[in-house]
C-alpha cells in the first residue's frame, strides 16, 4: 500500500521540519546553551518563575527578535535559490548586529550543530551554498535555510522557531540551575504566545529586504551577561557554554 500524496493545506501549517527544528531533542547542541540565564542566576537576578518570565521578555524582544529577522530572511532567500553572495552578506550583516563575541560564538556553534543534523535530514542546494561560505554558520541562518527549503513552511515559521528557541533554551536551563518547577518554567514560555506571533509576522514582513537594511534589535544587558559568562566560564566550572 502506498501513501497518498495530499496537497499542502492552506492556512497555518506545521511541517515536520518546523516541529523538529524547534524540538529541544534535535541533535544540534542547543541544550548546552542557557542564553545568558546561567550568569543571571549566578548574580541572583533570576531566582523564581516571575523573574524568569521577565528575563524571557528581554530575551524574546532583543536577541530573539534579531534571530527571527535573520531566520525569516534566510528562509526567503532559500526559497528563491539565492546566489552565494547573498549568504555571505547575511553572514556579515548578522555578525554586525551581534557586538558580543561570546554571543556570536554561541550562535555559530549551535549553527554548526544544527547544520550537521540538517545535512543528514534535510539536504538542499541552499544549505550547501550557506556551508560554502562558512562551516560554522549562524544558527538563525541554518534554521531559515532548513525551513525555507520545505514546501510546507516559510519565513514566518522560521522566525517562530528561533523566537521560540530563544525562550525555551533559558527556560529549561532555569529548571536545571534553580530546580524550578518545570510546569512554572513552561508557563513562563507560554505567556509569550501573542508576542512570539507578532514578532514572527513582523520578521516575515522584512524577510525580502536587502541584508543591510534588516532591522537591528540590540539588548545591551544581554551582551554584558554573555561576556561575563564567558569570562567566568574560563575561571570556574559552569554548567552551560553560554
Amino acid at each position: 500500500m502506498t501513501e497518498r500524496q495530499h496537497p499542502p493545506p492552506s492556512g497555518p501549517a506545521s511541517s515536520l521540519a518546523v516541529l523538529a527544528l524547534a524540538d529541544a531533542r534535535l541533535p544540534g547542541g542547543g541544550h548546552a546553551h542557557s542564553g545568558g540565564l546561567e550568569e543571571a542566576v549566578h548574580r541572583g537576578t533570576v531566582t523564581g518563575p516571575h523573574e524568569l518570565r521577565e528575563f524571557l521578555r528581554g530575551r524574546l524582544h532583543g536577541a530573539g527578535r534579531q534571530a527571527a529577522v535573520f531566520a525569516a530572511a534566510a528562509a526567503h532567500a532559500a526559497a528563491r535559490k539565492a546566489p552565494r553572495r547573498c549568504w555571505s552578506e547575511l553572514d556579515t550583516e548578522y555578525d554586525a548586529r551581534v557586538p558580543s563575541p561570546a554571543q556570536r560564538a554561541a550562535s555559530r556553534s549551535q549553527g554548526r550543530g544544527t547544520a550537521r543534523a540538517g545535512r543528514t535530514a534535510w539536504p538542499s542546494p541552499a544549505l550547501r551554498e550557506l556551508m560554502s561560505v562558512t562551516d560554522s554558520p549562524h544558527h538563525p541562518l541554518v534554521v531559515g535555510v532548513l525551513v525555507g527549503a520545505s514546501s510546507l513552511a516559510g519565513p514566518k515559521d522560521a522566525a517562530a522557531v528561533v523566537a521560540y528557541l530563544s525562550l525555551s533554551g533559558p527556560a529549561s536551563a532555569a529548571v536545571r540551575l534553580l530546580g524550578l518547577d518545570p510546569f512554572a518554567a513552561n508557563a513562563a514560555v507560554a505567556a509569550f504566545e501573542a508576542d512570539t506571533e507578532r514578532l514572527a509576522r513582523a520578521a516575515a514582513r522584512t524577510a525580502g529586504l536587502p541584508a543591510a537594511e534588516l532591522p537591528s534589535t540590540g539588548a545591551p544587558a544581554l551582551d554584558l551577561l554573555a561576556q561575563a559568562h564567558r569570562k567566568h566560564h574560563e575561571e570556574e566550572v559552569r554548567l552551560f557554554a553560554s
Binding site: E54, R57, R59, H61, P170, P220, A221, L222, L225
Partner: peptide
C-alpha cells in the same frame, strides 16, 4: 522591557 535583565537591566 527596560527592566528585563536580558534587555537593559
Amino acid at each position: 522591557l527596560r527592566d528585563s535583565h536580558a534587555y537593559l537591566g
